[in-house]
Design a protein around this nucleic acid. Structure first.
Lengths: 201, 201, 201, 201
DNA sequence: TAATAATCGAGACGGTACGTCGCGTCTTCTG
DNA sequence: CAGAAGACGCGACGTACCGTCTCGATTATTA
């Protein structure tokens, strides 16, 4: 993950750890001060970090890659599912989404970067591949187990079903920031989708 | 809405409607050709539109404001619901969302602009108030009629239910822009949420 | 000379004399405030004069032509030569040059415009044709009369001779602006060139 | 003189000498092609020189300062006088003036830049001190030797006499560009001023 | 211990786009 | 008609960053 991963030890002066830290620190500082990604120039980072521009480019190909590393470092770990039932797994999954949504709202940095991420294709793709997709896969696995266990109908498109569960949370977090993310939300969503909303009988 | 809204008629030559259109058209063209917003320079728009840069800056303070107007200009009109049943209404509502997602241009634009807008609270609020909220209200009304008609359980949170229907479509359009939006999707979503996904019996 | 010269009286609303005056006045004001010709935009003149730009362009094709009129209005009249002798005529001619040189030094406007004139070919040519050339012709005529009267050798190139007389004055006025232009200068120059500077006998 | 004068060696990549030369060369080219100074944009110079605009602005604050340096760079070296006689010295001096006037580039440049310079007193003074004054001094020395050798009357104001010799050449070069600067001109001027133009006897 | 080699801060390089200003022309409405 | 007002397409302004490229000066490892 970090740019100074262990290598076969090459000759010459090694990369400065102080520079690594100074770059990261300067970037976080500038983001915390409210800079947009667009306004956050490599030149500004280098200047703030007291570092040459080339020192940054030596570590990352561009702005976006730097942010990918930055984002991954603050992303919470994948949720661990209880495995007791499909319902429990789905609730746990949505709960972790909810927690992140809450964190996102409290962390200026996260909010700042998240909302701009889609403008930077490489950044978005990297985030998609390393964060969103794995988590989607976890959800699909849980659904498959649910089908196998007879908890979920076998004739439903699981991709769609997954979106059915995740959609509302993501909508409230990303599309409609400010919406409520109250504690019971995951259960509500899961039960509504599992049971349907037609009157019984 | 448009920059040349009706005014008390100021002196001097009036803004050219042809220029208005040329700018909008050029921007949509460039976006449709795959330009990201950050790669979409005012200079390129002006050149493509056959218009001076100042003519653009005379209308909008910057790129962001231009995109908000653009967004509104491509926004399809509110859907007309058949009113035959809650299911039909919801399908019609989601179908209009799907159509919007399909329009390649519109989708690229939505995808690009949505996040940017969140950085400008007032602009986001304006868009929210004039586009998102009315449509949400239409959905909520349909759901209320469904409850009254006995098609939907009375004990469900309608706000949440609305998100349940809309979430998947928005997720696929905005969050996961490459995802499929096949013709039957609205029906699938509506039926899945109405019926639930537990095995029958 | 003025833009509103007498004409065959055309139909429609006549040119406003107030506008004429306002334009001239505004230009002189701006020059007096120290604006360079370059910084003196038509836009600034129009704004200062409370006049539309088209009103200026209706009178003069461009900036330079406006200045030509302005310059001519402050240029002293051609000198009247006594005609008593070639020497007297030349002294009178150079005296008028000297007077203008003195005026140029005292008038910020003249100094300002003169020193920039050469940058504006049309302005310079117009000035050359209407001011410099006629005065040169007057000098040449005086020289020819001197030759005819036997005061000046017949084998001298009169064009060159004229430059010999005028050169020093122009040099001190234009090229070396701080140089002295003391009262007796014209006589000194004329006598030196007429008599030569070799020791007598 | 050049913008890259010897300095205590500052950190960072040093200014490119190739860029220096390319800028100077491009400007001279454009001037030689007949561009007026006002038509000579920094953008055109940069483009012609294959250089970024910033590279020019890094060296000179603006157009004016660039031209001063240019002027000095094309200024021919001070003439070497034969010393055989005052007449020979003066002819040599004027010949060097004539040569300078003939160089098409230099002439165009001189004509264009001279006046501009007068608007910037310090720049003018610098040019005066380093170019004009030394050359004037050379002329004055030659005249003094002429007086000492009995070639020139002792009662003439040498300052004025110098202007008498130099004036015509400068007039034709700077004030009346396009005038003839034929080969024999220096001799003609020197002889005319030395001998006077009154009929002999 | 010396040579070698990759690093460091610094800053110049050729570019692209920025947002502004003025050009000279062209509408619009008002006198 | 001419007036002012001001928008139009155009092109240059001077600035900010881009990502790359020298510089002289440090550090390490290898010989």
């Amino acid at each position: 993950m970090t740019p100074t991963a262990d290598a076969p030890r090459s000759p010459g002066r090694p990369r400065s750890v102080r520079a690594d830290e100074a770059i990261i620190e300067a970037t976080l500082d500038l983001l915390a001060e409210g800079s947009t990604i667009e306004a956050l120039s490599i030149e500004a980072i280098a200047s703030r970090a007291g570092v040459g521009k080339a020192t940054i480019y030596r570590r990352w190909p561009g702005k976006e890659e730097l942010f990918v590393d930055l984002l991954r470092s603050v992303e919470p770990p994948d949720p661990v599912l209880p495995g007791t039932s499909a319902r429990d797994d789905l609730v746990a999954l949505l709960e972790s989404l909810r927690q992140r949504g809450l964190a996102k709202r409290t962390s200026a940095l996260l909010h700042n970067v998240f909302s701009q991420m889609q403008l930077y294709p490489k950044l978005w793709e990297a985030y998609h591949a390393t964060v969103i997709e794995p988590r989607r896969r976890i959800g699909l696995d849980a659904l498959r187990r649910g089908v196998a266990a007879g908890e979920i109908r076998a004739d439903v498109d699981l991709e769609l079903l997954n979106d059915l569960f995740v959609g509302p949370l993501l909508l409230r977090t990303v599309i409609r920031p400010g919406a409520t993310l109250e504690p019971g939300l995951p259960e509500q969503v899961v039960d509504a989708v599992l049971d349907g909303v037609r009157p019984k009988g």
